[in-house]
Structures are given as structure tokens and as C-alpha cells.
Design a protein around this nucleic acid. Structure first.
Lengths: 225, 225, 225, 225
DNA sequence: AATGAATGAGGGTTCATTCAT
DNA sequence: CATGAATGAACCCTCATTCAT
């Protein structure tokens, strides 16, 4: 499924073209990732607006100045955190596609399942996504990263839909519209998971998607109980 | 459509039943609303995490200390801003319902149209909603307000779906699931409006919803071109 | 005992040389005193450094701007409060002298008793005195008022001591030194009342003074049990 | 004279028993003491109520945020300043006792002399003590520290008096009352030093104490010229 | 590379003071 | 005379950033 791969500014530990200091560079990359991970935890726990670099350093078990040493500025750390979040998501997304069955329907199913899986769809992770989305309007950088990915997501899904439509003869269905709807649904379900954790049910979310797919592509997605 | 009305802590400009000082009281409420409006503009422009009380005061054309005078603290201002945002939305929502046709399908249609109308679905307003959603995990207060509203929204829509299902004999359709899906779709479409304003199209959003409704309730929502 | 009277800048409600508006002026003086009283309560409760004009206005049951209306500034209010405190003390002091027996020893006794009486020597009142004394070094105004009074106190007491010494033939005793000691003792006893209210005992304070007087002027102050 | 030693929360520059980073720790303690010293100067110069953290930082030749870095809050700085003031006094007090002659009368004499020595009894230092005493009523923390010390002072002095009384056969004298009187006298003399620096005379203060001691314990404290 | 003490700009907040009513 | 909304300077405090070690 390489054809869908794309690049964001996410590439921890690029091979270090320099001669010897591979270990040092590797360690540097590892430290950066460690700090990014700490940042994500902090965003999830305290929110973007009250997270401080002290929090991040503490969470990472390191000292005050460490973030500026590795990322120059807080803004930069956050930008790279978003890139990492997106990259991580993309990797899992790609893997889910690769591991899916051969048909487009299987792939589509895999994507949807993937998006609702606990490793992706849990309050902690979602809080981070929404934290960045909440600043998208005022931070062109965030917007670019998010928009790029969303576009790609829609493209991939639309492509799969096109194959399904061709395969199953659904003349009245627009691939783009279905892709758009699916993408929106996932994001909306994520929001409700974040906002109403008490009443939220993963099964309800899954069957909402299933129902939609079943009513849109009845010959590919049989209605479940 | 009073049966769907509900209350959030939103009540700008109470009717001033008291005899004297009505003017002063009115002015006080007006000032608060003025500050809340300024806050919304600032959130939309700068984001929750970099908006300052100075920004708000400037935007309102007033002096530094004015916010603390009327809201005691920034936290409080933000909480009341969210309440106002929700209240404003609720009012428009209720009005849209009232003005809709007599049938449940008309009402449902009205809600969907309302949610995608420019006065609701524009980057400025959406940025505010997402700003608060982005902090929901770390601010129980925000969560409560948002969850309360989401629940209500789903209830109202589910109720309408139930009427439509009963009326149109759609035995395999679950009202809750459809309501859930519609609610998620709207939020997801909002997100894409916020994130990808360039490629976003109101018509595409509308037809995504229309298509879904048409495929779910074919006898009530005829497929459009 | 007019010979000992002296003036501080304390004179509430001076007769108002103007023609008619006597009532208005009287009311004005009353209001000023009301505010000064409120100020004293606030100093006792919150301390000089955290007392605000709002506190004073609240305590007096009046509105925000009232203090500046009547006293122009906070500094001025405090200066007049100190003057009032000193004036009040002076009045009671004078009255205690007037009401005392005819002899110098009686007068001295009366002064000492007066200084340890609950109406003077209670934590509330003392807190106010010490609050001002605590700022004496940095506020020449306070110092002047306090120094003036202290001088007078010492003079009065030294005068009485002189009479006692002459009357009782205590050749080795210096009137000034005894006056100085008595004055210091009283202030020290006040401090211990303020600092150690739990263990402080009015009787212990009184007998400390009695013992001192008995050992200094044995023929005038018989030792008590 | 170890039997009279006692502890307040005062311990600048702990000996750094730890192996490494002794320098850093030492420096930290030194910085704290530096700030406390600056605080004392500021209180003496401007008074508790108008001293600001800026003043302290300037006085110490350091930057704005330094106090909060080392003391967390202004309240905390002040509390530790009082503790340091009391600790410093206690150390000198103990040393004066140690260096005094062998007899109880010598010790008592040493204490009194000590309390009136210029290094203790000067307007700058006294202004600080009175500044804190002025807030004792509204700050339980201050009160506790002050009350604790006063109690100890009285205990030590009373103990000495008891020895003197036993040694010299003064049946009618109460050790507690004398101790109480002496303690009060010293505080009162301090006040007059603070309030009336012009007319205040160290010799007058000393002879007031001497006279009292001579008349109370004639066989131990011979009358001076 | 890592530390953590130090900086200082800028935040939220307080409050003495002003002024239209 | 009295009110209380409004002001804005100045406070305490936070925190991203710097830098000597």
C-alpha cells in the first residue's frame, strides 16, 4: 500500500549522514522522542494552555533547560509533537491497510476498525488531537499539518470507495461524498468519546459506522446484528 | 417545540424585574456580554492558549482591570464564555426547530441545515468551539457543559428519528444510531471546515448529510441531484 | 489637670464657623469618625498591610469611593486614624487623671490602672497601636505623633514622680528614670498581651507594676498580696 | 548554658554533609540568606506594607523573579525572614549567656546589656521586630514564632532570678514577676528607641534597667552613679 | 550532553483613585 | 452627599529562555 504513503515533517532519528557519531545522534533522536512523548502526556493531562516546559521536563525525568536544548523553543516542540502524533497515526494507518484483506472493502473495513481501536480512540490520545485542532485557526503551522493529513485520508478512502462502487455497481453513490462522510463520522465519534466518556460506547460507535457502510454498500457490508 | 428546550447556565440580561436601578443592572449585564463577545473574538483570533485579558479589554475598548471587575478571574470569564456560546447555539437551535415544518422530517432537515448555516458553521465560531473542546479533558467544567448539550442534541434528534421511523416503517433502523451518526457527522464536518477552509465546501457538506438521510430514510428524504 | 493636656491633630467635628450648614458639617464629622472607626476594626482584623479601602467601606456599610471623598487618600485616612487613636487615648488618660484621688501617688496609680484596663489593653486596640508603631521608622508622620505623645506621657508621669519623691523623701530615686521605666513597662506589657494572649494575665501585669512601684516608692505604694 | 538553648525554624547553611554538590547547596543557602538580609533592609527602610519583591531583588542586586524562585511566595519570604531574625537574636543571646560570668547575676546582667547593645538595639533592627509585631494579631504564623521566643526568654530570665533569689534571700520577690517586668522593660525601651530616636539615650535605658535591678536585688546589683 | 540557577518579559490580579450619575 | 462602575499603575507570580558549570 505504499502508494498512499506520504510525508509529514516526522522522521525521528534520520540516519545521520555524519561519519562516526551515529550513537550520539541516535541518542539525540531518542531523547527528542522521549521529550515528545512526555509532551503528549502533559497535553493530555493539563491541556495545551496550561502545560509548561517544566511539566514536560519533569514528566521526562530530566532537567529544566532540556527542552530548549533539544527543540530551541516551546513552539518548535509543539510543532514537532504534532508532527510526531500525525506520523505515528500515519504509520499505524498504513500498517492497518497493509494487514487488511485483499479487497477494497476489507481495506475500508480495516481503516474504520483501526480508527475506533482503543490504541487510537482513547481519551488521552484524542485530547491531544483536539488540543491541536483547537488552535488550528490561530496557528497556520498546525493547520497545514492537519489539513495535509485529512486530505490524504479522504483521498485514500475515496479511492477505496471508488473501487467498491465500480466493483459493486452502486451508480447513485459518490465516492467522494462517502469518503467525506466517513471521515467526518470518525472525527465526530472521537469528539463524543472525548466529551462524553461516561455514556460513550465503542460498540455503539462501531455499529454506527457499520450501519452506514451497510446502507451505503449493502452488497459489500452485510448488516450485522 | 418547547418540549426540547433545556437550560444551560446562560441568561444574559435578565428582565430586571426590580424597580429601580434597572438601567444600571441592564448595563452591567450588557457589559458582561460585551466582554464575552470580545473574548470570543480573541479566542478565534489568537487561540485559547495565547489570549490574554489585555487582548479582551482592548477588543472591548475598555481598560485592563475590567474583566476581573466583572468576572473575578480569567477562568470564570472562560467558563461563562463557553456557557454563553452554548446558550447562543441553543437559542438558535430552538428557533430553527420552531420555524421548521410540522413533520419530524422537516424538523430534522431544519436542524441539519441550521448546523451548516454560515452563521453557525464558520471558521470563527468553530474555532471557539474547538478551542473549548481541546481543553475538555483537563477542565471538568468545560466537559460538563459540552456533554450536557451533546446529550440533549442526541435526544432531540433521536426523538425525531423515532417519529420518522414509526411513520415510515423502517424496521431495521435504530433511531439512536442514526441520531448518533448525524451528530457525529455534523461535528466532523465542522472540523473539516476548520481545518481545510480552502477545500471545504458548504454544498459538499450539505449533500453528504442529504445523501446519508436519503439512504437512511428514503421515503422521507428524496435523493437530490 | 489641664496643665497636662496637649494637642495632637485630633479634633473631630470642629464647630464649623460657617453660618447655616451646621448639621451638614456635623454629619460630615460623624461620617469621618465612622470611617475611622471602621478603619481601626480593619487594621485589627487584617493588619495594616492587607487592609484595603474596600474593607473599610464595607465595614462602615458604605460605598467604594467613600473614603477618598472624605479623606482624599488612604495615607491621609491612616494618619487621621492614628491621630484619632491617640486623641481617644489622651481623652481617657486625662479623664483617669481627673477622676483620681488628690495625691500624686493616687494619680500615678490611676494612670497605671488605666493603661491596663480592658478598654485600653485588649488585643484589638493594641494591634492598632503596634500596627502604627511597626511603620514608625518609615513614616515620619506616624513617628511625630507617637513621639509627641510619648514625650507627654513621660513628662506627666515624671512630674508625678517628682512630687512623690519630694513628698516621700526618696533621695536616690530619679523621677525621670522611674517615669521612663514605667512607660517602658506598660508598653512591654502591652506587647506581651498582644503576642501571648493565651498565657497573658491582667493580674500578673498589674502586680508587676505594683511590685515595681512598691519597691521604688515603698512609703506610697504598700506591697499587696 | 546549653540548657537554655532551643530551636526555632532557623538553620542557614546546613553543613552540607552530602558528598557532591556541596557547593551548589551552600550557594543556595547563601542566596536565601542574601535575600533575607535584603528583605530586612527593605522592611527597615520602607515598612512591611510598602516593601515589594522588586525592592528586595534590587537591594540584593538580583533579578525580579529571584524571590519566588527561592521562597515560592512573598508570604513565605516574610515568614522565613522573621524566623531568621529570631534565630539570629537567639544565637547572639545564647552567646552572650555563654560569655557571661559564672553567677546567675552575671548572666542576667549580660542579657540585659546584650539587649541594649547597639548591634541589637538600633532603629534598623527594631523597626523589623516592630514591623512583625504590628502584624501579629492578623498573622498566626508570626504570633507563634514570637510567642515561642518570648516564652523562652521569660523562662531563662525567671530561672536566673530564681537562682538569685535563692542565693540572696529575697523572700518577698517573685522570680516570674521580675522576669516578666524585665522582659517588658526591654521591649518598652526598644519601642522608645524606635519612636523617639532624638531624645533616646542608651545610657538612660541602661540605668533604668540598672536601677530596677538594684532596687530589686540590692545585694547582687549595687547601685551605680 | 546535561544541569539548574538565574533572568526578565509579561501574565493575572488587586486596589487606590476618579468621575459620571 | 453618595454611589459604584471604571481606570490603570503596580503588584506578585509564572515561565520560556539563557548560560555558567
Amino acid at each position: 500500500m505504499n502508494e498512499y504513503s506520504f510525508t509529514l515533517c516526522h522522521d525521528p532519528g534520520m540516519p545521520a549522514a555524519t561519519t562516526s557519531s551515529a550513537r550520539r545522534t541516535a541518542s539525540r533522536a531518542a531523547r527528542r522522542q522521549q521529550l515528545i512523548d512526555a509532551t503528549m502526556k502533559c497535553i493530555a493531562r493539563k491541556g495545551l494552555s496550561s502545560m509548561t516546559l517544566s511539566d514536560v521536563a519533569s514528566e521526562a525525568g530530566l532537567s529544566q533547560g532540556i527542552v530548549n536544548l533539544h527543540f530551541e523553543s516551546k513552539d518548535n516542540l509543539l510543532a514537532e509533537t504534532l508532527a510526531s502524533l500525525a506520523g505515528e497515526y500515519r504509520d499505524k494507518f498504513d500498517k492497518a491497510l497493509e494487514n487488511s484483506g485483499p479487497d477494497a472493502a476489507d481495506s475500508l473495513q480495516a481503516i474504520m476498525e483501526h480508527d475506533l481501536r482503543p490504541s487510537i480512540c482513547n481519551r488521552g490520545k484524542l485530547a491531544i488531537w483536539f488540543a491541536f485542532w483547537g488552535e488550528v485557526k490561530s496557528r497556520p503551522t498546525y493547520q497545514r499539518v492537519c489539513a495535509e493529513w485529512d486530505q490524504r485520508y479522504d483521498d485514500v478512502v475515496a479511492d477505496l470507495c471508488r473501487q467498491i462502487i465500480a466493483d459493486g455497481d452502486y451508480p447513485k453513490v459518490s465516492a467522494e461524498s462517502v469518503a467525506y462522510t466517513l471521515s467526518a463520522m470518525i472525527n465526530g465519534l472521537w469528539l463524543s468519546c472525548l466529551i462524553s466518556p461516561r455514556s460513550w460506547s465503542r460498540d455503539a460507535a462501531r455499529s454506527a459506522v457499520s450501519n452506514y457502510l451497510a446502507s451505503t454498500f449493502p452488497r459489500h457490508f452485510p448488516r450485522t446484528a
